[in-house]
Design a protein around this nucleic acid. Structure first.
Lengths: 345, 345
DNA sequence: CTGTTAGCGCCTTCAT
DNA sequence: ATGAAGGCGCTAACAG
């Protein structure tokens, strides 16, 4: 374990020269700088993290709090945690996972002990207690997801409202007038998980704006069957279906419709919105408005690091605009096609 | 940000008394100890992590390296990362996620900078370069999974060989003589990912020991269709099926068999082995030999922390014994039942 | 049982 | 452009 002193001796300079040569925080002549770098490389010198933290009062560590509910979708969680870690690494930060039962406690501790320089909050509920904690802490925190009261907070998320409108509009523009939504499981929505609510409410609002028949169903047990049954009994003429749900339920939508003798896109047009999973390799590919973990996480970490490194702490909410991917699962409804044909005749 | 000095003054003692009162590393009279604790609580004192690390030469941080391949199953990954984090928290350690492209580099760095006190290695390949690195590092490392050459390493894993034998035996004992295995995708197996190989080879060996017809198929695109097709053309009389595969493929097994007019368990008996996901809530529940992330991770972290805290660094491989869960998907084959009936007559 | 003190290794201001 | 030196906050000998 080489230290600055070792490098200084080997290079024949003082330790401050070593420090500056490596950090580049002040001008050093090329000669000495090269000498220092060579010595450091030869000794395989790596500054001790703890000493650096203590002296610089900065840990170069970000904490990620991701509380785990029974209904948590691990694969989506992991995607976000990974993307945060990747972008953090890009900017010279390591990432600490805080997944204890007690998210508040561990977040408070990370701040109080200066273990982490900032916190990324995942899986945000509408009424998330971590929002108040963040306000109380005077410490850099960024939310991926938007709590109901986002005052004084830095938040980043996909624009789920816009995604919902986009999905509804796509179906409505194709001529559909009766549209169902398969949302997330009831427990998830009732817990107040923020984006299912935002999506659902925007879906309903848009349908009403455009005068469409609509209904919402909540899947159970990772299956779409019951949700499809419910939608079809509420909307016997349903020809449009929006999925804002998990991977397994989305994959089950086609079989569930088939059980009613309905096929995609012939009888029912489908859009998967806010989908963190691919939909183009399903037996029946589905149009998709992706939930781009990378976009959200990159923006969030950039914001957080700006707050840490440059003190840019102004509150703000950053909405990532959704994007529509066409895989052929939306068509004009058969009825209107027939009507159109009759018109022509 | 209160410091030891603040607490010492408030309690009217010296800083070492504060330190010892809080760490409990030497005897302190009840009176003074209470005084110190009260002062600390009032000032909301939390020792600065960096200072503690530097002085004690211990970070109380574990690193987790989890390289991410395209075929990585995120949800399983996350389960392991979580379980490691939980057990680490239990023992007073935080967990750093190392998911950069360059697993070697970041593992080396965590050790060289003393950022982490030890490393947990996930997603181990048979020929994993991190094995050599671990041997070279003289630093506590534990593998969850078993590389081909485990010399001088600490490894923990479920006993996949035993699980394979258990699955085969269950089917064979029920009277099945023609058994298929759906393994992991070909890329995963060819990369040398350790447990699919261990499972597959043990499956084949056991089938041969018991004189059973057998075949292995590798699923593609998260679907079981092609794999089932292949198995049935290799084994037209297949009545037993072992699944050592991902959640989505396992869920697709029943529909895929149905496409051939086969049902579970009437025509085909099925065992899902090494399954990190539940199988009893599938439309057709499946017998299961669970892959218990918690068991492996708890054992691994305990081992690692023993190595760090008590210097117990002897190499060893810990195999977690599998356990069979019966959900009714294994029955005697129809043929042999008929034959048995004829016998009786 | 308690206090004093010497580092842990690095960063950074001040001096040159 | 470089050196010298004072902390950062805590732990753990070493002394009583």
């Amino acid at each position: 374990m080489a230290t600055v002193d070792d490098v200084a001796k080997a290079a024949g300079v003082s330790i401050s020269t070593v420090s500056y040569a490596l950090s580049g925080k002040r001008a050093i002549s090329h000669e000495t700088r090269d000498r220092v770098l060579k010595a450091a490389a030869e000794l395989n010198y790596q500054p001790r993290a703890s000493a650096r933290m203590l002296a610089a009062n900065r840990s170069h560590i970000l904490a990620v709090t991701a509380p785990l509910h029974e209904d948590t979708d691990h694969s989506v969680h992991m995607q976000f945690a990974m993307e945060v870690t990747k972008e953090a690494a890009e900017l010279g930060y390591d990432t600490l996972l805080l997944v204890h039962d007690d998210a508040m406690q561990s977040m408070r501790r990370a701040a109080a002990t200066a273990l982490a320089d900032g916190v990324v909050v995942l899986d945000v509920d509408a009424d998330d207690p971590r929002a108040d904690l963040a306000r109380a802490l005077d410490y850099p925190v960024v939310f991926i997801g938007i709590p109901h009261d986002a005052t004084d907070l830095m938040c980043v998320d996909m624009d789920f409202e816009q995604a919902a409108r986009m999905a509804v509009d796509r179906l409505a523009d194709a001529g559909h007038t009766s549209i169902g939504l398969i949302s997330h499981p009831r427990v998830t929505v009732e817990r107040g998980s923020n984006f299912p609510l935002r999506f659902r409410d925007a879906f309903v609002a848009r349908c009403e704006e455009r005068g469409l028949d609509h209904a919402v169903a909540y899947p159970r047990e990772h299956s779409a069957r019951e949700a499809v049954d419910n939608l079809l009994s509420a909307l016997p003429n349903m020809t449009g279906l929006v999925l804002n749900t998990s991977s397994d339920v989305a994959a089950d939508a086609s079989p569930a419709l088939a059980a009613h003798g309905l096929s995609i896109p012939h009888d029912v047009s489908v859009v998967a919105a806010g989908a963190a999973y691919p939909t183009h390799r399903l037996p029946v590919p589905l149009d998709r408005i992706p939930l781009d973990a990378q976009a959200s996480c990159t923006a969030a970490v950039d914001l957080l690091v700006a707050a840490i490194d440059r003190g840019e702490r102004e509150a703000r909410t950053l909405l990532i605009p959704p994007e529509y991917q066409d895989f052929g699962s939306v068509r004009a409804p058969v009825d209107s096609a027939e009507k159109a044909a009759q018109h022509l005749v």
